[in-house]
C-alpha cells in the first residue's frame, strides 16, 4: 500500500523485456546504475546473486538483464537478449556466482564487482524491490540508499569540515531543488560519500563546480536512471 500519488504509468508500464519486472527489469536497472558508477571502459564484472536471484536467475534471464545493464541497455532494450554475445564483442568478461549475503538483504539482491580498464574496482550492491523498482544499498562497502529514480549525484570526498557546505553552495547556485541529501562516512580513513537526489536535472557545470575544490573532492558523478 503506497501513500504517494501513483501515476497511471505505474499501473500500465514499464515497457520492458520480459519475463519478470523484479527479476529482469529490476536487475537491468541495478546494473545500469553500476555502470554509471564506474569510470571508463568496463573490463570485468562479477555478479554475486543472492536469494531468489541465485535460484531462478537463468529462467528469468536475470543474468542477461544484469549484463545488459552493464552494457548500458535500458529495461526496454531488446539487445538484452543478446547480452552475452555483446559483452564478448566489447571484451567484457563476466561471471555469475550464486551466493548468500545473509538475512539482512532483500531476496532479490545482487552484489557487483566491476573493474575498469585501468584496474579500478567498485563494489555495488542493489536490491530489486518489485515492479522494476530498485534500491542501491551498498557502495564500496559503505551502506547507502538511493533509487536512481531521481536525478542522482554522488560525490566522493574527504571527510573534513566544510565539504557539505561547498557542495550545497554549488547545487544552490544552479537553483536545483534537492529532494534528499545524505552523507555516508567510511569507518576507517577519511573518505565520505554524499548522495544527492534532485527533482531537476543536475547540470554538468554544477558537477564541475563541485570538483573544482580538488583538495576536498575526490570525484563527483551522475548515476540517475532518467
Amino acid at each position: 500500500m503506497a501513500a504517494k500519488n501513483l501515476s497511471v504509468f505505474d499501473a500500465i508500464g514499464p515497457r520492458m523485456v520480459g519475463p519478470s519486472s523484479s527479476h529482469t527489469a529490476g536487475a537491468a536497472r541495478i546494473a545500469l546504475v553500476g555502470r554509471k558508477i564506474v569510470k571508463g571502459r568496463i573490463k570485468e564484472v562479477q555478479f554475486f546473486l543472492h536469494g531468489s536471484f541465485s535460484k531462478t536467475y537463468k529462467g528469468h534471464g536475470t543474468d542477461r538483464a544484469l549484463l545488459g545493464g552493464i552494457l548500458g541497455y535500458s529495461t526496454e532494450d531488446p539487445r538484452i537478449v543478446d547480452a552475452y554475445a555483446k559483452a564478448k564483442e566489447e571484451g567484457i568478461s563476466y561471471s555469475f556466482i550464486p551466493t548468500d549475503l545473509g538475512d539482512d538483504y532483500h531476496p532479490n539482491t545482487v552484489k557487483m564487482l566491476i573493474t575498469n580498464e585501468a584496474g579500478v574496482q567498485v563494489e555495488v550492491i542493489g536490491e530489486s524491490i518489485g515492479g522494476g523498482s530498485i534500491n542501491i544499498v551498498q557502495l564500496n562497502g559503505l551502506r547507502v540508499e538511493f533509487t536512481g529514480e531521481f536525478y542522482t549525484l554522488i560525490v566522493k570526498q574527504r571527510d573534513v569540515p566544510g565539504v557539505a557546505a561547498h557542495i550545497t553552495q554549488c547545487i544552490a547556485s544552479e537553483e536545483i531543488n534537492v529532494a534528499f541529501m545524505r552523507i555516508y562516512r567510511e569507518e576507517k580513513g577519511n573518505v565520505a560519500y554524499t548522495v544527492i537526489e534532485a527533482d531537476e536535472e543536475i547540470s554538468a557545470s554544477a558537477v564541475e563546480k563541485i570538483k573544482e575544490k580538488r583538495d576536498l573532492i575526490k570525484d563527483a558523478f551522475i548515476v540517475s536512471l532518467r
Binding site: 500500465i12 515497457r15 520492458m16 523485456v17 520480459g18 529482469t24 538484452i80 537478449v81 522494476g132
Partner: peptide
C-alpha cells in the same frame, strides 16, 4: 513474448501482461 524475453508492457505486472 514475455517468457521469451520479448518486449511487453507490464499491465499491471509482467505476469499479467497479456490480459489488457
Amino acid at each position: 513474448v514475455n517468457a521469451s524475453m520479448g518486449l511487453i508492457v507490464a499491465a499491471p505486472t509482467a505476469g499479467s501482461c497479456g490480459i489488457l
